[in-house]
């Protein structure tokens, strides 16, 4: 038996369903078999699975995520990277025979450098390994870094990158979205950058209201009209 509507705002502990439903992300089953929300978010019902799409929260790394980090420490053989999460990322500097195989110029990093990295392994607590040893990863030059709530990243990308392509097209900018809520932007001029920044704020505050893509599209057209 379903106790909430699809896309309804739910609070932690709120009963979502009883019986034959399966718990998805951010849903747990209590001792009496009732499915309850773990976080403040939107109920998402797909077939028999109920999950909660959180409306806020910090970034918890996941293997395979693309993140934008800032080099915070370099100690001997590892580069420590801040990725806006409780856990710091580590990039081991290649040594020995691997040096011949990798592009060592990528590892010439300094404090404060902004890098695009991929989460290689994460054990859930202390050890978070990142990698930049891939095409397209590594130091980000030029551009600006904007920050958004990590919980809103899926909405900024959109279904099959729909939202991201609207943003790219309308602002004529290069945009890279990190799963940790950092966004790298290179715009043709300040005007596009500021419009994009406003659009991102709008996505953050209105992410739970349907018809978001259309609103953002017309908002950007208006902002950049003259």
């Amino acid at each position: 038996m379903l106790l909430v509507k699809n896309r309804e705002v739910v609070v932690p502990g709120q009963a979502l369903a009883k019986g034959k439903f399966k718990p998805g992300k951010d849903v747990y089953i209590d001792n009496s078999g009732v499915l309850r929300a773990k976080k403040l978010g939107l109920a998402d019902i797909k077939d028999n699975t109920i999950s909660v799409v959180p409306l806020s929260g910090i970034y918890i790394p996941k293997e395979g995520d693309i993140v934008i980090g800032i080099v915070s420490k370099i100690s001997g053989s590892t580069i420590i990277v801040d990725i806006r999460s409780p856990y710091q990322g580590a990039i081991p500097i290649p040594r020995g025979r691997t040096v011949e195989r990798v592009d060592m110029s990528k590892y010439d990093l300094h404090l404060g450098d902004v890098i695009l990295a991929k989460v290689k392994t994460f054990d859930g607590s202390s050890s978070l390994l990142l990698t930049i040893d891939m095409e397209g990863l590594g130091k980000l030059e030029e551009g600006f870094i904007l920050e958004v709530e990590p919980a809103k990243v899926p909405r900024i990308i959109g279904k099959r990158q729909s939202m991201l392509s609207i943003l790219r097209e309308k602002t004529k900018s290069e945009i890279i979205v990190g799963n940790n809520g950092r966004i790298w932007v290179k715009s043709p001029s300040l005007k596009e950058l500021l419009a994009l920044k406003k659009a991102l704020r709008k996505i953050e505050t209105e992410s739970h209201v349907s018809g978001l893509s259309d609103r953002i599209s017309s908002f950007l057209s208006e902002e950049l009209s003259d």
Binding site: V11, P12, G13, D26, Y28, D30, R36, K38, K39, L40, G41, P54, L55, S56, G57, I58, A151
Partner: peptide, 11 residues
Amino acid sequence: LANAGIAMRGL
């Protein structure tokens, strides 16, 4: 806590 998006059993 709920506003911070932390996983909770309930309020």
